[in-house]
Design a protein around this nucleic acid. Structure first.
Lengths: 189, 189, 189, 189
DNA sequence: CCTTAATCGAGACGGTACGTCGTGTCTTCAT
DNA sequence: ATGAAGACACGACGTACCGTCTCGATTAAGG
């Protein structure tokens, strides 16, 4: 018998639900197996760690039928970025996503292999999209052509991440301020 | 009998050393107790979790006799910030600090109480020092008086943290670029 | 300061009560100290083990103001023995005494020093009284003068102890039957 | 997976050996597990207490290939009983059996459930054999047919047990004397 | 009568064992 | 011939007591 897709789905779903209910620290392989109605071996056979299961659960989520993954491009960079960063703020504030994301972040913090896979399969593509939108702005003359786009991405998004990570205040207004100041800096040089 | 300070020190030292050797995930209360030559109960009596022990180890470290905690203020904001951020880059790249910091970050990620204590006892004072330096710059006319200093701090430091967290490239040159762009943005408005 | 008699009494009482409530296995020095309102050291200062405390509690009990310790001697050996053995059966069946006695027996089983002290301070005097009554019977011609009184004591009392120990049926009628048969055997030789 | 018989045997052997080496009080589940090369859980999975393990160790021993369990029946009751009781004396004096037996006795003293199982699985069958020999004597006219055989068994064996329990002198001669006197008493009525 | 040293209560300490939970490997059995 | 079920050796958990050790705070002698 080849790999059972039903089991695979059940495991990923169980992992995702459980991490939301009990947190990453109390997430166990046994718990996932029990909730998924699956033998432990079936998990160990296909994943090296609970972090990897969690990661796949995320992958499955982000590969779900979602429309155009590209960032909006109305021609107005500042407006588009405010839109996107406000959406990011909303997502980070949603408790449905907060717990699993924290869990995944914790998993990666102490598992370089997992972090590498995350970087490659989730983070890099996302950053590529962001860079693409900025490059389009360069071509439209809204950003200097010498601007360092990697720096720009960090300047724009990492303040949000910092506040989320440390559970500090994270508002749409803050997102706007970040966009305005960062863009001003990028344009000024 | 009152609390034994010798045991307290031994525990914090053992925790700090062990986390550097085996990482946070494999750090155990039993291991700390054994290394410190202490009964487990002596740890459980005074700390609620291994994360809390680790946090105290950090506190002890940062409260050690260290000279003036204030940021340098030569009158040249940009130069001073580059100095400080390059030092931050160096520290984050030092394996002696990398492992324990990752551990503490992981501990806080899944323990809001710990995160709150971190924010209050380590992060807030540090941010106050950073804001103080920026305020001094405002008074010296190197920054507009309306600039949002909390935003400024995040704009300057969180890109470094992002790259450290995700083990991306983190160089002194990047620190310089962040300072230049962020300051430009802050001044432009 | 000399030994505090109030503490001593409180400890013995606490030990006696506790053993009745939780049994010997779950009896702890800490528990006794807490119940007696006494520091642990006060117990360790005066007794070597929880068994020794228990033993002293028994001693205190059996040294309490109780009338004539001698066995009854009406001149009718068989009647007197039946009276005494029936009383023994009653005592062994009384739950107030059952638990502490079992506890003390268990303590002695695995502590030869305690067993020796028991033999010397409680058992030997009791056996002496029993032999005395039998000797009186010999003098009255109710028992042959060559009868082995030590054997006689065991023949009479140990069947009761056996049934108590193994929680078998233990009735006054059984006591009577033991007396009749044992005496018959002792007289027949 | 079904219960591992190799582990079961190793545990019982380890328990038996350890109790002889360190005594019941210092016998620990961890010690048994370590000596048997077994996880603690494997003991807790199948036995409720260390007393129960010890009891099973005894059961295994007494169920080992041993010839005819019946008491000798040469037709001469007194001679047969002396033989058996002298053997009992020898066994009780053998340090190889003394320690484990004391341990088991202590375990039963404070654990009624264990005592009940002992009574049912070890004591009752033994007593049945003893009664069988006495009944055979009744049929042979060596004992009155009205004799109470349960009383007879206690009269014969409990004196030995008493002396063993309290570490009193226990000799073959004593066994002979018990047999003679008890039989005389049983016959006289 | 007033020191003063033994004893007291309290409880922290380094340890050992408890009984439970989870790990990752393995074997069995039903499908 | 796969997968659920779950036993296994192992290791850590957090708790309970062990017996030892300070701590002040009585407290009853004896100077």
């Amino acid at each position: 018998m080849r790999r059972s897709d039903a089991s695979r789905r059940a495991i990923l779903l169980a992992a995702f639900e459980l991490v939301g209910e009990v947190g990453y620290a109390k997430l166990t392989i046994e718990g996932i197996a029990a909730r998924a109605g699956v033998g432990k071996q079936t998990i160990y056979r296909w994943w090296p760690s609970k972090g990897a299961v969690l990661f796949d659960a995320f992958l499955a989520l982000s590969e779900d039928p979602q429309g155009d993954p590209a960032l909006p491009d109305t021609g107005d960079l500042e407006a588009d970025l405010k839109l996107v960063l406000r959406a990011t703020v909303a997502e980070l504030s949603d408790p449905r996503y907060d717990a699993p994301m924290r869990a995944l972040t914790a998993a990666m913090l102490n598992d370089p292999a997992l972090a590498a896979e995350y970087e490659q399969r989730l983070d890099a593509p996302m950053r590529a999209l962001k860079r693409a939108r900025l490059r389009s702005a360069q071509e439209a003359g809204q950003l200097p052509s010498e601007a360092d786009l990697d720096l720009a991405v960090d300047l724009l998004w990492s303040p949000l991440m910092r506040r989320w990570l440390e559970r500090a205040e994270l508002t749409p207004a803050f997102a706007d301020a970040v966009v305005e100041t960062a863009l001003a800096g990028l344009r000024a040089r």
